[in-house]
Design a protein around this nucleic acid. Structure first.
Lengths: 166, 166
DNA sequence: TGGGGTAACTTGCTTTTCGCAAGTGAGTGG
DNA sequence: CCACTCACTTGCGAAAAGCAAGTTACCCCA
């Protein structure tokens, strides 16, 4: 996507995508969630070019999802550890995992989340933490928040108009 | 990322990213979920170049998330409608929305999901549909499925080894 | 009948980014 | 002291993205 200064969206999805909405970045986060920490581990696992990896790791550190930590001073060696923010990204990956299994597991499920105790595969869905209601368009709607600017308001207005008509 | 034939991952997250793991593609899906259907609506909303938009829409159609539907034959006019598969992608966007609001809403929340009846903002989390347990690494682990090949098995083995050590 | 507008693109060109290969620095192991 | 590991950087050609303009096929209005 363009690097040039586009006018900084307010949309929370857009905000997320601006920072981590890159293929390699998401794969790095997947691998980090599975316990990879070192440059060459990511390099081998992903088959990514080192210059690209350097950039993506720097971006993740800059945005606070990874922390660069020296585990050896001489020689200088680093590992990249997930921060709390990075760990908090897990639901996005979980949602992608579930979606991939539902739609792109042609030859059957290759990897899945299972209950540690029972071994039963999970069926991850999104619910509201408080009410427990599943997040569907039936129960929930996109609405402006306290900081909503014209961009979001216009979008919500469009959706409302659309709902009224059709 | 590279278009050249890399050896087709089995990882469900990887599978998903291969097909829709592109910034513009994800933004198109966001907009489609909010009711946009037409070429020029996406073009204006996203500020994306038309040649790029054409490619992304074609990719989404090819992967079965959108359907190209003629709403006028003369002149030929098309709209792009979410398929069931496309609608099923919503949890990923919801997870990104929640993540964005938790971490990148500097000046306050601009857009959020609210309960249609009560107007109370949702706090979307992932749970197992059957047991209702929240999807955390405490309760759930990544495990090979019936179709797991060496790639997934090696990854799981690595994670287990890592867990054992500390 | 003709000028303007809309919608959904395509084409051509420039700029940016990516991917690959090779190189570098600071060590460790034999 | 030679090979090897790790975490990179540099240089270069290829691929992709962005921009502007053009195209097709209508409809509307006077």
């Amino acid at each position: 996507m363009s690097k040039s200064e586009r006018p900084a969206t307010q949309c929370p999805v857009g905000r997320t995508l601006e920072r981590v909405g890159d293929g390699w970045t998401l794969l790095i986060l997947r691998d980090a969630a599975q316990g990879l920490t070192r440059f060459d581990q990511f390099e081998k696992s992903l088959g990514v070019a080192p210059n690209i990896l350097t950039k993506r790791l720097a971006g993740l550190v800059e945005n606070g999802l990874l922390e660069k930590h020296a585990y050896s001073e001489r020689p200088p060696r680093y590992e990249y550890l997930l921060t709390d923010r990075g760990r908090d990204f897990a639901p996005v990956l979980t949602a992608m995992l579930a979606f991939g299994n539902r739609h792109f597991a042609l030859e059957g499920v290759a990897g899945q989340l299972v209950d540690r105790e029972t071994g039963v595969p999970a069926e991850p869905i999104m619910v509201d933490r408080v009410s427990g209601k599943p997040i569907t368009s039936e129960h929930f709607a996109y609405a402006p928040g306290p900081a909503a600017g014209p961009e979001v308001l216009a979008r919500v207005a469009f959706m409302a108009e659309r709902q009224a008509k059709g």
